[in-house]
Design a protein around this nucleic acid. Structure first.
Lengths: 151, 151
DNA sequence: CTCCTTTGACTTTCTTTGACCTTTAGTTAA
DNA sequence: TTAACTAAAGGTCAAAGAAAGTCAAAGGAG
């Protein structure tokens, strides 16, 4: 029998697949109730199966009317005009760092670049540019795989 | 479903958008009645979603004929001619690489980011953004000095 | 045994409300 | 005329409520 985590993962992935824009928004408590489990179980599933290095971006808000949004990251340049906020970018970088795909210094460099200050002049396009930068980074990581310790 | 605060925010932003001069004047009590909430809720929305760093300035008067005025400013950072072309950027990166300030992989990453493809959506501002990115990189290098070989 | 799951107590963040304070315009009385 | 009162705003702040996050400990499968 597949584990609860597996079932929740499957459930969410189906939701994403069926969505228009490769994203889904849930409420942690609600989903926990659906699966009759502790809310933190949902957090666990997200942190083990919906990581940035797997191509997912999550975003959430606490408090009243809080939510968790999961988005599948189109690594292969899909100009669907997708955008990434500064906070989301930070999460992605942290994950890539944690997983060892980026060194601390690389993550630091990118964090500076992706900040509001630098990208602001792009105005409404800044989220989009942030998306494109992250996209490039992901691709680059794939292409330079194995070189991590060489440099 | 989105929260009350979110709805009030949206409502006000629509009003501003539709206005001639990017500003709107309301009465706190009136708006609170419209949304069936405590007047201080309006204050809360203003202080969390119409901040200066988001480009808004609010102004108000108490007492009889009191009001709250919200103005949106185009946070127009003046690109004072500071711009860096793609080719120039490449030279700079090469130089930083040669001098050992960047690893090969870091330089590669940055080269990808600074390319035309990524920054194009910024339109006329892309040279300026490239300039700011390079600036950040320079600063970051200074701040992480000595860490180069630690990672 | 070891690693992955599951749970629950505690923490942090965001929202909503209400009681009380301050400011202003208008009105009234000396 | 002007000082004092009154009513009508908006401001503040703290408490209560509503979610999500964290983390360590217990439970299970291989």
């Amino acid at each position: 029998m597949r584990s609860l985590s597996d079932r929740i993962e499957k459930y969410l992935k189906v939701l994403i697949e069926r969505s228009e824009n490769e994203e889904v928004e849930i409420q942690r408590i609600e989903l926990a109730e659906t699966f009759q489990c502790a809310p933190s179980q949902i957090t666990y599933v997200l942190s083990t199966r919906f990581t940035a290095s797997e191509g997912f971006i999550t975003e959430s808000k606490r408090g009243g009317r809080g939510f968790i949004k999961i988005r599948k990251f189109p690594i292969n340049e899909n100009p669907g005009k997708t955008g990434i906020s500064e906070a989301q970018a930070e999460n992605i970088l942290q994950d890539l760092r944690d997983k060892g795909f980026l060194t601390e210094r690389e993550a630091y460099l990118l964090r500076e670049i992706l900040g509001r200050e630098v990208l602001d002049p792009a105005g409404g396009e800044s989220d989009y540019i942030r998306f494109k930068i992250i996209n490039k980074v992901m691709k680059s990581i794939k292409e330079t795989e194995g070189e991590r310790n060489v440099l």
